[in-house]
Design a protein around this nucleic acid. Sequence first.
DNA 1: TCAAAAGTGTTTGACTTACACCCATGA
DNA 2: TCATGGGTGTAAGTCAAACACTTTTGA
Lengths: 231, 231
Amino acid sequence: VIEHKQTAAVNLISKMSLDLSVRIIAFAVSSDGLDVALLPAPETTSDVMIPAGTLRTGEMLSDAAVRIASDALSAQPDYLEQLYTFSIADDAIQVVVAYFALLSAETRRSIERSAKVTFIHVDAQHGLSDIDQGILDYAKVRLRAKLGYSNIGFFLLPREFTLSELQDVYESVIGRTLDKRNFRRRILASRILEPVGAKRPTNHRPAALYRFTGKDPSTGALTPAETDWSS
Amino acid sequence: VIEHKQTAAVNLISKMSLDLSVRIIAFAVSSDGLDVALLPAPETTSDVMIPAGTLRTGEMLSDAAVRIASDALSAQPDYLEQLYTFSIADDAIQVVVAYFALLSAETRRSIERSAKVTFIHVDAQHGLSDIDQGILDYAKVRLRAKLGYSNIGFFLLPREFTLSELQDVYESVIGRTLDKRNFRRRILASRILEPVGAKRPTNHRPAALYRFTGKDPSTGALTPAETDWSS
DNA sequence: TCAAAAGTGTTTGACTTACACCCATGA
DNA sequence: TCATGGGTGTAAGTCAAACACTTTTGA
């Protein structure tokens, strides 16, 4: 309806062999670093695959991503963002719109109970197909970059967390240790955390718990508004 | 070939009405700011449109973007990067992979001679369709953000340029004036410019010319490698 | 000699980094 | 009382911002 004549004409040809899939790279943290959620692959070419699906008629890409992620993981991701659109030149046209998802500690636990998903360390050899591996590599780069200028790190934690847990997430993702005092000073100065009165019980000195103030990852408009442009 | 069984099955349905277009938002600078290259629209719904096209069989998205840009502009853009993939929920599935392009001063001049393109100030009322306007708005945001952490600004200039011209580009894009001394200090300190011996002749004090050292926009791996994953 | 843009340094405040010890708790 | 992680401050260096005048040229 908004489409233009010249492109519409050519579509009749290209449409015939066009194959569009949506894939979800879902990250979660574990005690020993950053993991990615994968499914057993039904193919012989690889043992494991990135959760995938296709767009339905009348469905927006962002809605499809939520649906496919929820189906594969039996849980809604805590954060979801479009990553990149890949293409594979072949006799058919294959286009992959990749999304990356972040899973909080609670979400991860719930997934591990119910779903057939396996969490694998991001730097392990996964036995992924070449394209899946390429998507994963790029998702890692973007996640790391994004931790630097936004607060998406919070989406990998439980709703209430200690500063040390937050620091662990940062260190997992960027792969480098950080100075405790500087880290705490910067985080607290940014006023994006609020203390919840409680302390987490431990077998050593208990840590104060914090909560992320306002569900805004202050992603700074790096994703468009996702308006529904239905005609 | 790399595709998985469960998604392949669903594709038979969705493929029927899937319509994928590639659109190019091409920016160039003029004396009074930042312009975008648009084509006259063949439709009644809008007077003007973003150059668009479709993927060909066996063609990668990035190749299609170059081809579509070159066709529409009768010139290769100096920089081209994937922007975002939009979708329109409708009875048909419409997906738009948007790219943004930068045109150097030379390229812009050559386009203005040959092509039927019109350059319009980015903030003008263009008479674009809603989705095209949305894409343009997002492209502006991204271009501005990107000037902050990369050097793509150089792609909007002639090969040899003065520091004042470079500063004008920055000011056009971010829409704010900058301090001359601070600007020059920062740019020169970053060692991405090299002086070419010449000076530009003017009717006032002539300015030293510089050239961008090494065609690396130091985009910092914010775009994946674009490997050819043909199976 | 005038107009017009080119070119040039210093000071200030803010932020980043490096660095080491005491504290509270449960076992 | 001991082991374990929680919590705290300061000094040095680096970086960004504000700010105004002199220089070179062609007309």
